[in-house]
Design a binder for these strands. Structure first.
Lengths: 219, 219
DNA sequence: TAGATTGTTAATCGATTAACAATC
DNA sequence: TAGATTGTTAATCGATTAACAATC
């Protein structure tokens, strides 16, 4: 089973969202904000915001609220954005290439150090100055380059095998885009982006009403 | 606020996962499975599986379990996979192109009917036989092509404006990859894939232990 | 029939919301 | 000081798990 977090994932998943809203406030030169104001902007309860933040300490001031810049910086730190991360992208297909090229991540401190693929016609070509390497060089590259996060963008058939190799070589975090549930050791962080699962909730919801209408008629 | 579902999202988000496991069982020619066996494979409780399924009816048989093929087909239908969906991709950047090219979705019945962008050097070029069109032609195209789902892959600055245009033109579902919280009418389905938020939970978890160690020392 | 396993009700657990004393 | 708003405890709500009668 993948690594368990100290704070509940429900809270953790809201942190980037707070971060986004605070960034926006900062851009608009807003100096302070109360949990009530922020809650109205975000469509959540003020209670939730205060509870969430208080997992990490008391950052506000009674009668005043929160200093926007201070809170933004604090949440940046909590999210680990005060350092950089070396990443590798495994699989240089459509999605792998898109991720490797996506500059938003780089701006936040996530640097793509290497790209790997199995296809000989891709190996040797470049994406943004980074050569696509043969997957055979994976172990060696990890050992020599202090990689923090592996981004997995390969078809599901080989995903578990590659994940095993990654963790055996000391990778401590996998951002997985392969449409499969990976097994990783207890101390490895696994974050899934199951695009297909996400899309299927859309098709589900487009039909949900009919689903329940019909099952009533059938009675 | 976006459309509310009848069954809780917690349940809905598990359905694609059941679907994947059943597909695997089907491939391996396994004919029947009990909630207990499936729960062990999936790392959930048997109770949860039975509770989840019973939102949609009783598909099992006491003393026997579930017929794999039957259950797979049933969940396929529940997920709306017994029909096809016309989609458009807005934004032909890295991510938009990757999604448009991704054949897994097409195989499940999601057809990309049009791609739109604002950049004149992209307009007129093709992705998989589909011409990239000027965003100015969006309204007209939606009216004439019976589009079910709009896939939004544009920078956040214009995302809300485009979302407004989509919903005004009758789009009932948006699969949003833009890193922003969109406001959509009550009857519109909104599914977010916030890649950056997801990645930030990884960096968070890579540092969580230190975070709590330090705050204790500071006391 | 006996054994197995469902569907469903009841109990528990965790997350969210409300309330309010503390305090800026 | 009075008003505002936090941090935190208590209450509520919803989701998960356990239990078990029904039944194949």
């Amino acid at each position: 089973m993948a690594k368990k977090s100290i704070v509940s994932m429900a809270v953790i998943r809201r942190l980037p969202r707070y971060h986004r809203y605070l960034e926006e406030l900062l851009k608009n030169d807003i100096k302070r904000i109360s949990s009530k104001e922020l809650s109205e902007k975000m469509g959540v309860t003020a209670s939730q915001i205060r509870q969430d933040l208080n997992n990490y300490g008391g950052f506000g001031q009674q009668g005043y609220g929160y200093n926007v810049e201070e809170l933004y910086n604090t949440i940046s730190k909590i999210l680990g954005l005060d350092r950089t991360y070396n990443t590798i992208v495994i699989g240089a297909g459509n999605l792998g290439q898109a991720i490797a090229r996506y500059t938003n991540f780089e701006r936040k401190g996530f640097k793509v150090k290497g790209i790997f693929d199995i296809k000989s016609d891709l190996i040797g070509t470049k994406i943004k100055d980074i050569e696509i390497m043969d997957i055979d060089k994976l172990n060696e590259f990890i050992s020599n380059n202090n990689i923090d996060i592996a981004i997995l963008c390969i078809p599901k058939d080989n995903a578990q095998k590659i994940a095993d190799r990654l963790t055996k070589n000391g990778i401590k975090a996998i951002w997985n885009f392969s449409p499969i549930d990976l097994r990783v050791p207890d101390d490895v962080i696994l974050e899934n982006v199951h695009l297909s699962d996400s899309l299927l909730t859309v098709s589900y919801r487009l039909n949900e009403e009919d689903l329940f209408k019909n099952s009533t008629e059938e009675k």
